[in-house]
Computed example of a mutant assay.
Amino acid sequence: MPSKSAIQRARKDKREGKSPSTQAGEFVREEIEHVREGKHGARSTKQAIAIGLSEARRAGVDVPAKGKAAKKSSAKKSAAKKSAAKKSSTKKSATKKSATKKSACKKAATKKTASKKAARKSSETKATRSRAATKALKKEGSAAASKRALSRQGHQAAAKRSAADRSAAAKKAARTKGAKGRSAAAKKAARTRARHSGD
């Protein structure tokens, strides 16, 4: 579960008009800190980021899925729509037939017991899967959260994006950063240039 501070920072970002990916960045940063602190490890930097993004989605951040995950979610949505349409059509036909009250009560009772059993089983499965995932992560190392690994991941991700896309993201960041943020960023850039000028 994400910490309260991460959720608060994400909500603050949302109020300031920052993008969902920026809001999710708070959860990713927290996950990287967990790996560095030794709470658990990660097989790769991508895995650590993916864990942070899933935590953000659970917290209600509207992070869009990409690649295979996006295809799966769209397939699930279409399947849910089809099943909902089928249920509505069956309900309409059932109302026309007007079943007796006794049979309706029996059906409702059996449905309740079946749903309770299903809910209990799913919660048990979630708990087991969660424990197994945590156990597996604890076996992994913390090298995935090193500065070098994060830098490499950032460069690889940026290289896949077009120049126009990177430019648009930078412009939006400058707009949402605010006057103080822009001033701080400019000072930091100046310090970095001064440091590298002597090389």
Rank of each mutant, 00 (worst) to 15 (best):
A104E: 13
E26V: 09
K121F: 03
K46A: 14
L137H: 05
S3Y: 06
A132R: 12
K180L: 08
D199M: 10
K81M: 09
E55I: 00
A108Y: 08
A158D: 11
T45M: 07
A108F: 07
K147Q: 06
A170F: 10
R11K: 14
K39M: 08
G67C: 02
A85C: 01
A159C: 01
K39R: 12
A159N: 07
T128L: 08
V35S: 02
K96M: 02
A10T: 11
G60R: 10
A190V: 02
C105N: 14
K116E: 12
A99E: 14
A79C: 05
S123E: 14
K86Y: 03
K87A: 09
A174V: 01
C105I: 07
A190I: 02
A56H: 11
C105S: 12
G141M: 00
A145L: 07
A127W: 04
A144S: 13
A145V: 06
K87Y: 04
D62Q: 12
K72T: 06
T192Q: 11
S89E: 15
R152E: 12
P2G: 12
R120P: 09
A70C: 00
E55C: 00
G41F: 05
K92H: 05
A99S: 13
A50M: 12
P64G: 07
R131S: 14
T176L: 09
A173Q: 07
A164M: 01
K66A: 08
G38W: 02
T100S: 15
G41T: 01
T95C: 03
K91N: 04
R195S: 11
G60I: 00
V35Q: 02
A186T: 06
A48I: 03
A6F: 08
S151R: 10
K14N: 09
H40I: 01
K147H: 04
A109M: 06
A174W: 03
A127T: 10
S98N: 08
G67Y: 04
K71V: 11
H40E: 05
Q156L: 15
T113K: 15
G25N: 11
A50P: 04
R57F: 00
R15F: 13
K91T: 07
K66D: 09
H196W: 04
A70D: 05
K177T: 09
T128R: 15
S167L: 14
S115Q: 14
S162L: 02
A157H: 04
R148W: 05
T125Y: 13
K87M: 02
I49Q: 14
R11E: 15
K116T: 14
L150A: 08
R11M: 10
A173T: 06
R191E: 09
D165W: 03
K66E: 12
A144Y: 02
K18Y: 00
A163L: 09
C105L: 10
G17N: 04
S44V: 04
G181E: 00
A169L: 07
G41D: 06
G60F: 08
S44E: 03
K135D: 06
S142V: 03
T125D: 05
A149G: 05
K139P: 00
K147A: 13
S3D: 15
G198Y: 04
R29S: 12
A56E: 06
T22Y: 01
A143P: 01
T128P: 02
V61A: 02
T192V: 07
K177Q: 07
D199A: 10
S98H: 13
A169D: 13
S162M: 00
E16R: 15
